[in-house]
């Protein structure tokens, strides 16, 4: 992004994310599901970490705890040194607005807003005047190669283009942590690769970390490290996926 981040990090730290013994269960009694069973995870600043594993193993749950949209039952989670679980609700909402960029599998672009307006939302939520925010949105769209589609509605664009808008939206407010849940699941291989190219080359920065949940083994080479999850735990971390998956 061209504009510098408005709130520089209070505590420069080597770790973007530090989780210790995170637990989380859903439901009670017979319906109780233990989604996280003591997760330890560290994500370094500047890193793109992929979170992979079978369906239902707890990837989305873990991502939600990191992003501060879900309370864990136990354990600690620090994001750039801040204790996310310890924050009060309003404080955490403001922290999310400032610090987290979200990329969703289903894009979640508002169909009645233009691309630029959609991208402007995180800035508006932080109190930026609408026009200024839309200008920022246009710049962010240019960064993802969609400068000529700023006025288009999501429905007028392809899935790949929509996900690129979503990436622009995730980056427009210069967050320090970007979380992506299955960003390529709804895309074909070429579009998936383009999206990952963007995440790798535009989103990834020395002062930012990316956590990408995926099933899609074709995009594994884009990761710096891959954390394999199973049944609520991290079972294996692969340090050099580009080398190990290269044919």
């Amino acid at each position: 992004m061209r504009t510098p981040t408005p709130t520089p990090p209070a505590l420069p730290t080597q770790f973007a994310v530090q989780c210790r013994d995170l637990t989380k269960s859903f439901g009670t009694g017979a319906n109780r599901v233990q989604a996280l069973r003591g997760v330890d995870l560290e994500v370094a600043t500047g890193e793109l970490l992929m979170l992979v594993g079978p369906s239902g193993c707890g990837k989305t749950t873990l991502l939600s705890v990191l992003a501060g949209t879900l309370d864990s039952d136990g354990g600690t989670c620090r994001v750039f040194g801040e204790d996310v679980q310890g924050m009060r609700d309003g404080e955490r909402t403001r922290w999310r607005a400032r610090s987290i960029g979200f990329v969703f599998q289903a894009y979640n672009l508002i169909p009645t807003l233009s691309a630029a307006e959609n991208v402007a939302i995180p800035c508006v939520l932080q109190g930026m005047p609408r026009r200024a925010a839309i200008e920022r949105g246009k710049q962010a769209l240019a960064d993802v190669g969609l400068a000529d589609r700023v006025d288009a509605r999501p429905a007028q664009l392809s899935g790949g283009q929509q996900q690129r808008i979503a990436i622009a939206r995730a980056l427009v407010h210069e967050p320090r942590l970007v979380v992506c849940d299955e960003p390529t699941a709804a895309l074909d291989h070429d579009n998936g690769k383009r999206v990952m190219d963007l995440l790798r080359n535009v989103a990834a920065r020395a002062d930012r970390a990316l956590v990408v949940v995926t099933h899609d083994s074709r995009i594994f080479p884009f990761a710096d490290r891959i954390a394999h999850m199973d049944d609520g735990r991290i079972v294996r971390i692969v340090d050099d996926p580009a080398a190990s998956t290269a044919h």
């Binding site: 309003g90 403001r94 607005a97």
Partner: peptide, 18 residues
């Protein structure tokens, strides 16, 4: 019908008041 968008906004830092 718009709930998923509101949920996304809430995740992105919209307060309940907003």
């Amino acid at each position: 019908e718009n709930l998923r968008y509101y949920a996304a906004m809430k995740a992105m830092g919209a307060t309940n008041g907003t």
